[in-house]
Amino acid sequence: MNGYVEAGYVVVLGTLGTYGVALAARERVARRRLGTASSAAPTGTSAKADFPAQAGEASAVEHRAVEETEPGSGP
């Protein structure tokens, strides 16, 4: 074989491996940060406002509009 072939495999596999590990690490950090923020977050906010993605993936803006119409949920 020649050096070009090995170089090609090293670059491709190395890049994909590094990218995959970086994604997994960033995900772990984000998860940890959210866990920390969750324990420190003030109470009194609604589930919809906190997690728009879990309520039918609709937007936070749309959820606020819905909440405003709910009796007793206003500020």
Partner: peptide, 30 residues
Amino acid sequence: LVYIWLMAHRYRLARLQDLEDVEGLEVALE
């Protein structure tokens, strides 16, 4: 398959980042 795996992880990371953004906004409002 590698693409699907990477894309799934990138999607999950994006979702966590969106949750962080909403959380940060809520904390600031409070």
